[in-house]
Amino acid sequence: MPIKGWIEVNDLYCKGCELCVAACPQNVLALDLDQLTPKGYHPARLITAGCTGCNICAIVCPDAAITVYREARQKNKVAINA
């Protein structure tokens, strides 16, 4: 099963530049055209399942607006598989 991830976009900082949307390897990001940030931009959002928490969106974000989470690794995972 793929690793599960999650991102949060801080609307205070997001300027809707779409660099994260284009860079996302899973194509799970898009601008939310129904919302405006306090600065008047459409913010980026996780729109569908499939985020792996790969961090690419945060790496390309010019405004450090993205916080990335990833499913905690099970410590005994290796042992179970073996």
Binding site: K4, G5, W6, N10, L12, Y13, K15, G16, C17, E18, L19, K39, Y41, G53, N55, A58, V60, C61, P62, D63, A64, A65, I66, T67, V68, Y69, R70, E71, A72, R73
Partner: peptide, 26 residues
């Protein structure tokens, strides 16, 4: 979940005046 990435402490809370997508921010 584990926290993988968050805004670094050495950045201030200010919103930059850079245009959207300007790589100064990166």
């Amino acid at each position: 979940m584990d926290l993988i990435y968050q805004r670094p402490e050495s950045l201030s809370d200010a919103i930059t005046h850079y245009c959207p997508g300007c790589t100064h921010g990166i």
